[in-house]
Design a protein around this nucleic acid. Structure first.
Lengths: 359, 359
DNA sequence: CTGAAAGCGCTTACAG
DNA sequence: CTGAAAGCGCTTACAG
């Protein structure tokens, strides 16, 4: 196991194997045109020398970086509070490491800076493709990435689906990128129904930023379910996903003359903060107020009362997205993927409406 | 603003400026030997052409990747629950992006796989240096990175400080790397004292994995403070930092005949889970049980009761670590940095011991 | 102060 | 099936 002083290069392999370095390259990238025995010999030598192709040399030749990018435009505080991204990233990693790809991560605190980061990533050819999360309405990144010629995979299908795309594909359609879709509307609708079944008739929705498509989409699914039951769906508050915003939204809702008996939040941290506010006001959960979160983070099961939430699966979302991006680059296109839809996990924070003295 | 079809290369700049590409390179990297006016002309042309040096070409020439690495060996679930890393990463990013560096992130679920990742990062020359977090006792990464010749910065100083290093620097000392230190012992000691002052005499400590140096270090600081007050410091439970582990540790502690009146946890999620268990058992916090966390995550302020915690500052930790790694690479060495020590943030989850009927 | 040339370690037509 | 050569876009001694 003598550690070699200098890293072996393709020239070393060629010399030892007694062939040209071009042939080594062919053998290693198993391209046709190398006899079986020559290839075997070359591979044996490569293994022997512990040869690993230089990424930067390959990159320069092939104009490929062998890395994918993820740009997250969220405030650091929110990033830390919301377990979605760490899990998503872990899923991405799980696939990339086995494929010899690296993940280049960028965190920007505001969406203004975002474009600069993508441009730099593209100009420096740092990454071969990117993951697009937190899709927004009329998301400027779609056009930007197209302009940059940067392949991408979106989490969720942009609002105007590719199916409705203009017949002329040369026109900039709504989404030029394949999507890995996890239907959250079903879970949201089931959650709304769950609350209706418990007798709630005054239900509030504390959503994420409206400019994000998933917030709007979930909001609509939620409202539809309430509407279908003849229950008002006007109690909607928009937040930035922070626990702080969740807390203050809860405060406002509970101060209402006609306060809700149930509140559904866009993520678990906000719901947990909501429970905190309820307790502070002397309300019992779920006797006086039912509360539900979203994403079903680890903590949901352990807070008191344990939190009803909607389980998405960020880890496998990450895995699928990574595999899709690999496929997109290898084959030039990739079909949309549908993951298991989100589903409700009922715990102790939601319960039947307590019968009150009729107003 | 006509978008150029082909990216400008150094040759384009040289041609337009009427000089050799070598001179362009000198001017851009402002090295001596270029007259002021020539440099200005070259820079003007570069700007005009929107020229950006190719990272892979530079990398190949300089054997530098212009990227730093962070390998996290934690289970995805824990990663998601613990806000430390997202904030730390955000801090790192804040510095790197302005310096034209990228962050390559790797998440591995177990420490066995860790070595492979570092070796690959080094063999592929993916990164110029790495951040070492969650330092362990006799951490194998120290020797590994030395063997690989990979520069690094550690979060916290390895247990055996560099000051105590053997006189012969050629021998593998305890830590060959500079450290950015955030003293957490002070905050932990202050927290212990806070509980003592409230009258607690039976105080438990639910720590992170003992193989991690910060867990041991904090544990010692905690025990020292209790010992100095003549209070037993034997109630220590080790966990893996998950909320699940925090919950079960709490369960065990509260089932004790001589159950603690206060429990301190190694991170906030565990403390929040602890509050959950206490409530489930019909205990009131802090009347029947005081609870405190660590790291002071956003949620701490919004749970009920709001959580006393120890505030470290992952964001500036990340910033400092990034700056230190840049300096280490630029100048070949860097001095250790001491950040503001951690301090206690007292909230509603800790309170005076309730007088009980004496047993 | 400036230019011409070699080299970093690969890939890829182009010949044979 | 194999070799020799050019090229990717930089940096860096080496000359002048």
């Amino acid at each position: 196991m003598a550690t070699m002083k200098r890293k072996a290069t393709i020239n070393d392999v060629a010399r030892v194997a007694g062939v040209s370095k071009g042939l080594v390259s062919f053998a290693l990238n198993d391209r046709p045109g190398v006899s079986a025995e020559t290839r075997d010999r070359i591979l044996a030598v490569a293994r022997e020398l512990d040869y690993r192709p230089s990424v930067s040399a390959r990159s320069l030749s092939t104009r490929t970086s062998y890395a994918f990018g993820l740009v997250i435009a969220r405030d650091p505080e929110i990033l830390g509070a919301d377990p979605f991204f760490p899990s998503f990233i872990a899923g991405v990693e799980r696939v990339l490491t086995t494929e010899g790809r690296a993940l280049v991560l960028s965190v920007v605190s505001d969406e203004q800076h975002e474009a600069t980061v993508y441009r730099t990533l593209a100009a420096d050819a740092r990454v071969d493709g990117v993951f697009l999360t937190d899709l927004r309405h009329d998301d400027p990144r779609l056009a930007l990435l197209q302009e940059l010629g940067m392949p991408a995979v979106t989490l969720g299908r942009p609002a105007t689906s590719r199916a409705q795309e203009s017949a002329d594909p040369s026109l900039t359609g709504p989404s030029p990128f394949p999507a890995v879709v996890l239907d959250d509307t079903e879970g949201v609708a089931a959650l709304a129904q769950h609350l209706l079944d418990l007798g709630h008739r005054r239900i509030a929705h504390v959503t994420g930023p409206r400019r994000m498509q998933h917030a709007t989409r979930r909001g609509e699914a939620f409202a539809r379910t309430l509407d279908a039951a003849g229950v008002a769906s006007d109690l909607v508050l928009e937040t930035d996903f922070t626990a702080a915003a969740g807390a203050s939204a809860t405060d406002r809702l509970l101060a209402l003359a006609d306060a809700p008996t149930a509140i559904v939040y866009g993520n678990d941290p906000m719901a947990i903060a909501g429970i905190g506010i309820a307790h502070e006001r002397g309300l019992r959960v779920p006797d006086d107020l039912s509360v539900a979160g979203f994403d079903d983070s680890e903590l949901a099961r352990y807070v008191y009362p344990s939190l009803t939430s909607v389980r998405t699966d960020p880890l496998s979302w990450g895995e699928s997205a990574a595999r899709m991006l690999l496929r997109l680059l290898a084959e030039g296109h990739a079909d949309d993927i549908e993951l298991e839809p989100a589903h409700v996990v009922v715990r102790a924070s939601t319960g039947p409406v307590r019968t009150r003295a009729t107003a």
